[in-house]
Design a binder for these strands. Structure first.
Lengths: 168, 168
DNA sequence: CATTTTGTTCAATATAAAATGAACAATGCT
DNA sequence: AGCATTGTTCATTTTATATTGAACAAAATG
């Protein structure tokens, strides 16, 4: 039974699944501080059963060429998306890498790690400054710095732990 | 030797230490998606050797009463800051809770957890939608959904793990 | 090799988020 | 009670961020 009606119903089901997956990845993007458009692109690619062109992405998501181009570049740099060759078509076709670790690992590497590195340096700087403090204040601040340093250590431990959990 | 010059030098050292600590917490706020002003407030309180009033915060950070009031409310809701009674002064005085776990735990609870909960629900919804998909697509999508569900599990494990690491 | 197609870049624009400050409420003081 | 001080709220303004789209470059087509 493949009536027009049945086909329409299936098309709607596909549509709804896409929408729900896009929504999921848009929120994930939000959580890790990436643009909504990047969530949309990855979501649609994740839901797609075949490689999509940039043109299809802009059309179906209603985003501009610029957004699509930049978004895809970032996703490729993360390794979350790759280009797939399609014979007889010179346009680039994109597919999602299904392992989420690419997406999350890219985020950890590019967004989180730099801050941790900077923080370590800043703590040394603060150390130096506290040494020049008047004696009574100095004791108090030294105690607090010790706490901060414990957190630097924890942060440095947490990142590899998360990366390990992601098997990156 | 407590010449005017020496006192001025110490005042500068205090100033620099404050600035460096504020900068540190501003970046931490940035990483976890909190407003810069909240980082500034916590940073200054962390650097302060005595409780500060809201007025002192607005003055020294150059932020408005509104920002200070709202920022302090959030920090209190996280348990990252508490009010301390100062005899003979009816203004509220604030001190930083030095355990960073309050700040980070508050963030995990209020910003991250809700998304994880929503995501779990959304995955069930997607499950339902995939069941209505045409057979050939359905197999493919089911495979992908399995991956996503694995990540839900991981996410749910990671949160308690981080909370434990924070001893919250 | 002129033309079309495809993809990128970046200044301009639109959107979202945070900060402001005036109006208000609550509290303490004389 | 009347006044002064302190703290909160929220509509408006400011600032920061993301998106757009026109101009450009690169590559394929016929």
């Amino acid at each position: 039974m493949n009536t027009t009606k049945a086909i329409a119903a299936q098309a709607q089901a596909i549509q709804q699944t896409e929408t729900a997956l896009i929504e999921l990845f848009v929120r994930l993007a939000q959580v890790i501080g990436l643009q909504r458009s990047i969530g949309e692109i990855y979501g649609l690619l994740f839901a797609a059963v075949r490689p999509l062109t940039m043109d299809e992405l802009t059309q179906r998501l209603g985003i501009s060429k610029g957004s699509a181009s930049q978004g895809l570049r970032l996703l490729r740099s993360f390794g979350a998306v790759r280009m797939e060759y399609v014979p007889g078509d010179r346009r680039d076709h994109y597919v999602a890498e299904l392992e989420l670790r690419h997406l999350l690992g890219g985020f950890l590497r590019e967004k989180l790690q730099p801050h941790l590195v900077w923080g370590a340096g800043q703590l040394n700087e603060i150390d130096r400054l506290v040494a020049a403090l008047p004696g009574d204040d100095q004791g108090l601040l030294r105690q607090r710095l010790i706490r901060l340093k414990r957190w630097r250590t924890r942060g440095q431990k947490m990142l590899p732990m998360m990366l390990k959990l992601l098997r990156v």
